[in-house]
Amino acid sequence: MKIMGSEEIKRTLLKLTSNFLKKNKSLDEVVIIGIQRRGATLASRISEIIKSLKGKKLPVGTLDITLYRDDLSRISYQPIIRSTDIPFSIDDKHLLLVDDVLYSGRTVRAALDALLDHGRPKKIELLVFVDRSHRELPIQADYVGKKIMSLPGQIVEVKLKEMDEKEEVVILEKKKDEI
């Protein structure tokens, strides 16, 4: 079931970015890091929006959390390890962590552990495009694009044209074997 189209995705991203800008008047210490893969795409889009609104290009990095997952020995497939590319220091920075869907909270837990191996940011905030609830860990986002009511077995997918050739958010009934 499609719940968002490309226009709404665009508007939501703009809203998310301006919420972040409203709360943070100074961007001096801000860096953006997106979780592979769709979080990374969203992070670079957000930095483009900030550039067009504020004329400032913020440092953007990507983070792969595979090696920090807590279920590596329980899953039957081997996830592809994507690149972690953080070409700047995150020490004492205000770090905006970006992901597409917030669900159990386990990805964010892994991301926080991974980030702390790269340095010690002054503050980490979490921005997610979709919050579908059913948390298994005490983790909440600071900026949420859209809250979605979903059932635990369902799949919520954010599709972005950079990798999916489509722009939409969908809820699928079946469990996929690979994420």
Binding site: D64, L67, Y68, I81, R82, S83, T84, D85, D113, A114, D117, H118, G119
Partner: peptide, 14 residues
């Protein structure tokens, strides 16, 4: 992907 870990301040993953 593992090469990048060797360049980090903390050269270790769990």
């Amino acid at each position: 992907s593992f090469h990048e870990i060797l360049e980090r301040p903390i050269k270790k993953v769990p």
